[in-house]
């Protein structure tokens, strides 16, 4: 089987994979980083969203070999260096931006991607950027609220629904 190597959350990793091994399978099964979820496996739900070379992608719709020699960031690398939640994760916690939590890793990675280029997104821009991330608890209201809060915007007048 071909070898693949990449930097994942700042650490060099390698392994042997088949051509058909998806990037999400390599991350979960070879690296045992199971924070990246497989929700639909059909490119719809975004639970597997990660960053490759700083760009948001769906890890279920990319082969591991396509990430050879690239830099990958997953939810496991998002916390602060001291292990505390980063500002996005903390905002999701503070504003109840998760219910069952299955979609949350993808939501956090999509949010990090959005805030890199848009530090104060409007509600419309947030919802537009989350188009590829599905929450089947339908908890979008508080996800959007958490992202507004994470970007330093006043959410005191938004009801906790």
């Amino acid at each position: 089987m071909p070898d693949v190597k990449m930097i994942v959350n700042g650490k060099p990793v390698s392994g042997s994979v088949e051509g058909r091994t998806l990037l999400v399978e390599f991350i979960r099964n070879n690296l045992h980083l199971t924070g990246t979820h497989v929700g639909c496996d059909t490119s719809q739900c975004g639970a597997c969203a990660i960053h490759v070379d700083g760009k948001l992608v769906k890890a279920c719709t990319m082969f591991a070999l396509e990430a050879n020699n690239r830099e990958v960031a997953t939810i496991e690398g998002q916390a602060n260096n001291d292990g505390s939640l980063n500002f996005i994760q903390q905002a999701f916690k503070d504003h109840h931006g998760l219910q069952c939590g299955f979609c949350t890793p993808g939501m956090v990675m999509a949010t990090a991607d959005l805030l890199k280029t848009n530090s104060k997104p409007t509600e419309h821009e947030i919802r537009d950027h989350l188009e590829g991330n599905i929450c089947r608890c339908t908890g979008y209201h508080n996800i959007v609220k958490a992202i507004l809060a994470a970007s330093g915007q006043d959410v005191s007048r938004i009801a906790a629904e």
């Binding site: 975004g46 999509a110 991607d113 590829g132 991330n133």
Partner: peptide, 9 residues
């Protein structure tokens, strides 16, 4: 087209 992640690929 698609969504943000799809547009990156």
């Amino acid at each position: 087209i698609g969504d943000a992640a799809v547009r990156n690929r």
